[in-house]
């Protein structure tokens, strides 16, 4: 039985540019078969196997669907419409892990030197300094700010090592966005997202997403860079134990560097978003 709170959320189900006519993309959401297709009028529709149309929103290059009654509008990402940014769809990658684990990994900084060696981090620069985490009640999102980390190659456009500043944002249960120092424009942030489609509690399709200021790097290079980063994570994600994300303390011992993860888990638990989570009865 899937909790209503889970059904009432928005989840990505396809890249808008790749949606074809009926039956379109045959996939699943929260364990239920769905079809994502273009109608004759050109509109994108999402249907269950029973032929029931569900709520759809098109945003940020992706199709978002809600199997229940949307609890709120899809999160805002104003940067996506900002002139001068390049929007980069990075395809879709299937990962045998909990959708929540995929998001949590995206929020983690401490693994950079070990998993993204010489790109997003490097030994011996492994320390994660103190940063701030809040659950912002006004927007109902988790935010981490003032995160600083030394990176040998922070972006495709970075020429050498820089201390990168990050902000992390959990904008929806399975969608997170980070804002990081833009190597090309000191007064702007590069925006990188991860949109996760929960196929099942331990299986997901992950859509990396970027909105960057970079007029120079060819599109294919940007896609390769982001796919390289994400695929370095994939083998780690598929081997995490327990498979589901524990929401109660005791299973895993967090450290200072895991504050964002702690807040994410607390937020999920408070909202009853337990799909892909392991909840120990109190």
């Amino acid at each position: 039985m899937i909790p209503q709170a889970v059904l009432d959320q928005w989840y990505p189900v396809a890249m808008t540019s790749l949606v074809g006519p009926w039956p379109g993309r045959e996939t699943q959401l929260l364990g239920r078969p769905i079809m994502v297709f273009k109608t004759q009028s050109g509109a994108v529709s999402v249907q269950t196997a029973q032929g029931q149309a569900v709520a759809v929103t098109l945003a940020y290059g992706h199709v978002w669907a809600c199997l229940g009654t949307p609890a709120q509008d899809l999160f805002a990402l104003p940067e996506a419409a900002q002139p001068g940014r390049r929007l980069v769809d990075c395809g879709v990658v299937r990962v045998k892990c909990s959708p929540l684990r995929a998001v949590e990994n995206f929020l983690d900084i401490a693994h950079f030197p070990f998993v993204h060696t010489d790109v997003l981090g490097a030994e011996p620069h492994t320390e994660v300094g103190r940063y701030e985490v809040q659950i912002r009640d006004d927007v109902d999102e988790v935010w981490a700010t003032k995160v600083h980390f030394y990176q040998p190659q922070a972006a495709k456009s970075a020429a050498g090592g820089i201390v990168t500043e990050y902000m992390y944002r959990v904008a929806a249960p399975t969608a997170a966005v980070l804002y990081k120092t833009c190597p090309n424009r000191t007064n702007e942030w590069d925006v990188i997202g991860i949109f996760v489609q929960p196929l099942a509690e331990d299986l997901c399709d992950v859509y990396p997403y970027m909105a960057l200021f970079d007029d120079v790097t060819p599109q294919a290079d940007l896609i390769h860079f982001q796919q390289m980063i994400f695929l370095q994570d994939r083998s780690i994600l598929e081997n995490q134990i327990p498979r589901l994300l524990p929401l109660d303390p005791g299973m895993e011992i967090p450290t200072q560097a895991d504050l964002t993860s702690v807040a994410y888990r607390r937020w999920l638990k408070r909202k009853g978003l337990t799909y892909g989570a392991q909840v120990v009865a109190a």
């Binding site: 030994e123 796919q227 390289m228 980063i229 370095q232 994939r234 083998s235």
Partner: peptide, 17 residues
């Protein structure tokens, strides 16, 4: 050299410091 999915041998490198 590594590629995504094939990690380098951290454990064979000297420990930092």
């Amino acid at each position: 050299i590594e590629m995504p999915g094939i990690h380098r041998l951290h454990d064979l490198k000297p420990a930092p410091h």
